[in-house]
Write a protein that binds this DNA or RNA. Structure first.
Lengths: 230, 230
DNA sequence: GCAAAAGTGTTGGGGATACACCCATGG
DNA sequence: CCATGGGTGTATCCCCAACACTTTTGC
């Protein structure tokens, strides 16, 4: 590490951003907002926020979550820093975005709207300011890897859910379809699910069994990943 | 993005670091150096360097490579930013480390030594300054994932190599052993290798076949990953 | 009555693992 | 002559992919 006078290097700004994925049991969505001031006033962006010198990235992201969906109950992972020299016209701003995954209910839909954000379909992301399209593409790739290699439902489904809901989540994230029987076999083989014995009536009026995750098994799988692939 | 006066946020320093893995055909090693000035003067660190406001991360890493091994012929990937508030006593310094993978020859051994660096065994990393042990652990996990899911030999072996050398690389990185026949079967099934028809005499005096990678196939595999696991 | 969704088994193939011996060389 | 390392084949098992019909409900 080259030693030098502080002023020469302590002149970069740090920001976090959040690529927040929400699953409403039918579609995967991403929460976007519009920029409130220049540069790029009015353009689509992911929610972002400058980091103060004595603030951790996690604290900063939590504030972003409170300002948008109004709670912090989100699974988070840090993504690669985006640090190109001229990515922001006002100076050298490094954005360290996070990937977030959550269940999307009416509540978050309303809170987001109230706070000037919008949940937009995963497959229908508009052109955005800065390098935010790049950031979203990167986050989507991360989500795909996670879905393939680790269980993700715990963070994006209600406590009890149907197998069709789980399969829909996987199909949306990976943008392909699965054979129902094979999907269920794979899931059951992983011993990740517990039959609650209960049923629900789906929006289509069909009776459907409810399952929940085996939390202990889920934790183990989250760390190790699967030995098979979706 | 909250708008504000520039001085309030443009006060962070940015650094890159390199966790450089080298394979000398027998052992995996990591290049470390000792800190030349305070804080932590004399302590082990990974080679690191402040980023200037108009300098890209990649430019910065290239300079680090020239100052240590004296060439840039290294496979690089950016790792997660390390950004804890109090990780550096002189101020808020965010380190964006890179993972590097290369073949380690006599030349780099000598250059590193000349430039105050040392190649240390992968399994024998000393306590280090700042959070550099954490960074190395993170990079090791990345290497393990890469070895399991994508071909890595191209970046860490000579153009032509023996299957034992390739297997040793995998065994070192994953810290386990493989059955020779099964390892070869898996590699051949991937159709990644081409028999050069040549042989070499190993240091043990045995005649051994030389292989090289099928570059086209290798590129494809690097992007998609394997459908099987090591 | 018909369209849409929930639920359920079998078969075949391919890749992973486990496992042992021969031969050539250096010492 | 023996220790070391290069090279090779088979049998088993399990996971994966392909594939179709019944039942119930809403409309």
């Amino acid at each position: 590490m080259i030693q030098t006078n502080k002023a020469e290097y302590f002149n970069v700004a740090l920001a976090t951003g959040i690529v927040l994925f929400g699953f409403d049991l039918e579609n995967l969505k991403i929460m976007l907002t519009r920029k409130k001031d220049d540069p790029y006033k009015g353009a689509w962006v992911i929610p972002s926020r400058y980091v103060k010198a004595d603030e951790s990235l996690e604290e900063n992201i939590k504030i972003l979550l409170l300002q948008t969906i109004e709670h912090e109950d989100v699974y988070l992972e840090q993504l690669n820093a985006f640090a190109k020299v001229y990515r922001n016209p006002i100076g050298r701003v490094v954005n360290i975005p996070f990937y977030g995954l959550m269940q999307l209910t009416e509540k978050e839909q309303k809170n987001a709207e109230k706070n000037g954000c919008k949940w937009i379909n995963y497959h229908d992301i508009p052109p955005m300011a800065f390098d935010h399209n790049e950031i979203i593409d990167y986050a989507k790739e991360r989500l795909k890897r996670r879905v393939k290699r680790r269980p993700v439902g715990f963070n994006s489904l209600p406590k009890e859910f149907t197998l069709t809901q789980l399969q829909t989540l996987y199909e949306q994230a990976l943008n392909k379809t699965f054979d129902k029987r094979n999907f269920r076999k794979k899931i059951f083989n992983s011993e990740l699910l517990v039959d609650t014995g209960k049923t629900t009536i789906t929006p289509q009026g069909k009776e459907s069994k409810l399952y929940r995750f085996d939390e202990e098994k889920y934790e183990k799988m989250s760390l190790k990943g699967y030995d098979f692939l979706f």
